[in-house]
């Protein structure tokens, strides 16, 4: 794989933004994007977990699943890995840094079912990245997720003040806003 780090980082943050072009992690994107502060917290938690998961998942796949010839167990192994990492992070954070735990704590259980985390773990394997590229790819994807989330919550904070017809309020309005954001992000196509 001869892709440069710059192409991977820039590509995963802007060009192939995980939420706005690949539709991974849409649930938290719609669910926790009503305030800028909470979306920053969620973004930080996802960045932390996603990077950590890729650091563990890549060696597990290459040095355990491949030699044993059980690559088809990937889905089960990865989801269990994510669930345990999330659980572990929660326990460690609680002990080591109560302040950080209070900030990120409520988002952690939500991350297990964030499909972006499992999706990135599966994609980095199927794209054939080596270890360094995988970690860069996961971290950049998570930054892209945070970016989308923060942009979205900024727009939604403004929208709160507008008069919106009743049938359009809530998720439908969020989806249409996301569509406009996705249109804007299409401008990046072809840059990398």
């Amino acid at each position: 794989m001869e892709t440069s780090f710059f192409a991977i980082v820039f590509g995963s943050i802007f060009v192939n933004n995980v939420v706005l072009t690949q539709f991974l992690g849409v649930c938290p994107f719609l669910g926790v994007s009503s305030k800028i502060k909470t979306s920053l917290g969620m973004g930080a938690a996802v960045t932390f977990v996603m990077t950590l998961v890729s650091v563990i998942a890549w060696p597990v796949y290459m040095y355990v699943l491949v030699p044993l010839g059980i690559e088809y167990m990937q889905t089960i192994v990865f989801i269990l890995l994510i669930a345990s990492v999330v659980q572990m992070v929660e326990i460690v954070l609680k002990k080591v840094s109560p302040a950080l735990y209070r900030a990120l704590g409520i988002f952690l259980p939500l991350i297990t079912t964030n499909c972006a985390v499992l999706g990135v773990a599966i994609l980095m394997i199927s794209k054939g990245f080596d270890f360094g590229h995988s970690v860069a790819y996961s971290a950049a994807t998570a930054v892209g997720f945070t970016l989308a989330l923060v942009l979205m919550s900024g727009i939604r904070e403004r929208l709160e003040l507008e008069g919106i017809p009743k049938a359009v309020q809530g998720v439908s309005m969020a989806l249409i806003t996301a569509g406009m954001l996705a249109l804007a992000f299409m401008g990046f196509v072809g840059l990398v």
Partner: peptide, 25 residues
């Protein structure tokens, strides 16, 4: 073609949801 791409997905689902809300109310 944009409707097969990412933004179209958000738009179509958003408008279908509005329609569904409207009809089921």
């Amino acid at each position: 073609l944009v409707f097969v791409m990412a933004p179209g997905g958000f738009f179509v689902l958003g408008y279908l949801m509005i329609l569904f809300n409207r009809l089921s109310r």
